[in-house]
Amino acid sequence: MAEFWAAVVAFYTGTFGVPVRVLTIIVVASLVRLVLQLVIRRVVNRVISGVKKRQNVEDTAALQASPVAAMRIVQRTRAFGGVLSSTVTTVVVLVSLVLIVSAIDPNATGAFSLITAALGAGLGFGAQNVVRDVLNGLFIVTEDQLGVGDVVDLGQATGVVEAVGIRVTTVRDVNGTLWYVRNGEILRVGNMSQGWARVILDLAIPYDADIDAVKERMLQTGIEMRSDGKWKRLMMEQPEIWGIESISADAIVLRLVVKTRTGAKDDVARELRARVKRTLDAMGIRVPALGVAAGGAAKVGGSDDTPVIPGVVKPQATPRPPTTGGKK
């Protein structure tokens, strides 16, 4: 046995010792990275599978109708797993490089210290943005500001979060464009997937219309929609009439609101508009002309909806997490 280990030592210190040591370091580093990545992936999958099992669903998209905490666990776990995987890769690569340099030239330790000091000084100036990106990315994930699958407004881009890396967060907008946003440049996060959302429907009606009758029928239309089994699980509360939002010479703007689940806001809004339109037709009410009503409604603040007026071009819909083809 002693002869065997003596032969191994002689092999590593012989003519081909340096290449062999370098190769060994690379192989070991690759195996360590692979094992850690598998562990991280396994833990993430087990957490997600546990949440799905408790909620009795098979697809993550089905969690939209489940308690908010379950969806947040899945999204946060995926985001944290992505950041942790990137961190592991970075650490393994850096440690491997140090070991390879030491294997090539054992006397390079002193020189390497000087190089490290120089690199540290360089990080303080040239690479400070990279350090800021990394630190900000860690804070974003640990504070649960966003997660994979969230619909967010980052200022630079608005869309569905597809990945959260150690330096960059990728967001897919409603047009399908994939945006790469540096974590250090994210100064604010508007998360539209946490808690609940609200549909705000502003309706412009003629000035001489019976306001009380219209308000009653609008509210009744919303309540009837919520009693429908298809929409009941998506509308968290009964619709409310907030009253008159603005008045002009020819139009009065009424506001109807309803609290919904985050992933169902646009679907509920579209269906509610269609039902309100049919209600107005049944009442024989014609909305004012575009120019007249829009002038009064333009003063309405805080609404994500324009008055229900024929010919109005609606703004782009809020992007939603994909319901098919996504992560299971």
Rank of each mutant, 00 (worst) to 15 (best):
M1R: 10
E3K: 15
F11N: 06
Y12T: 09
P19L: 07
R21E: 00
V22I: 12
I25C: 06
I26P: 06
A29I: 03
Q37R: 14
L38M: 09
L38N: 13
L38Y: 08
R41G: 10
N45F: 03
N45E: 12
N45Y: 00
S49D: 13
E58F: 05
E58M: 13
A62T: 03
P67A: 03
M71V: 02
R72W: 01
A79Y: 01
G82T: 04
V83T: 12
T90S: 12
V91Q: 05
V91Y: 01
V92L: 05
V93L: 15
N107A: 07
T109V: 15
A111L: 10
F112Q: 09
T116D: 02
L119F: 11
G120I: 07
L123C: 11
G126C: 01
A127C: 03
V130C: 04
V130F: 04
R132I: 05
D133Y: 05
V134K: 07
L135T: 11
G137S: 14
F139H: 11
I140Q: 07
I140P: 02
Q145P: 06
G147S: 07
G149F: 00
D150M: 11
G155E: 02
G155I: 13
V160Y: 01
A163E: 10
A163F: 08
V164H: 02
V164M: 09
G165P: 08
R167L: 10
V171D: 05
R182Y: 12
N183M: 12
G184T: 14
E185H: 10
R188T: 12
V189Q: 10
G190S: 11
S193P: 12
W196A: 15
L201K: 12
D202H: 09
D202M: 11
D212Q: 15
R217K: 15
R217G: 00
R217S: 05
L219T: 04
T221Q: 09
G222S: 08
G222C: 13
I223F: 00
E224Q: 15
E224S: 15
M225L: 15
R226K: 14
M236G: 03
E237P: 05
W242N: 08
W242Q: 11
G243R: 07
G243V: 06
G243H: 12
I244L: 14
I244T: 14
D250L: 14
A251W: 02
I252A: 13
R255E: 06
K259G: 01
R261V: 00
T262Y: 00
A264K: 08
A264D: 11
K265G: 00
V268S: 06
E271N: 13
R275G: 03
R275I: 03
R275C: 04
A282H: 07
A282K: 14
A282S: 11
M283V: 04
A294I: 07
A294E: 14
G301P: 00
S303H: 07
S303N: 11
T306I: 05
T306P: 08
G311Q: 12
V312W: 06
V312I: 11
V313P: 04
T318P: 01
P322T: 05
G325M: 03
K327H: 04
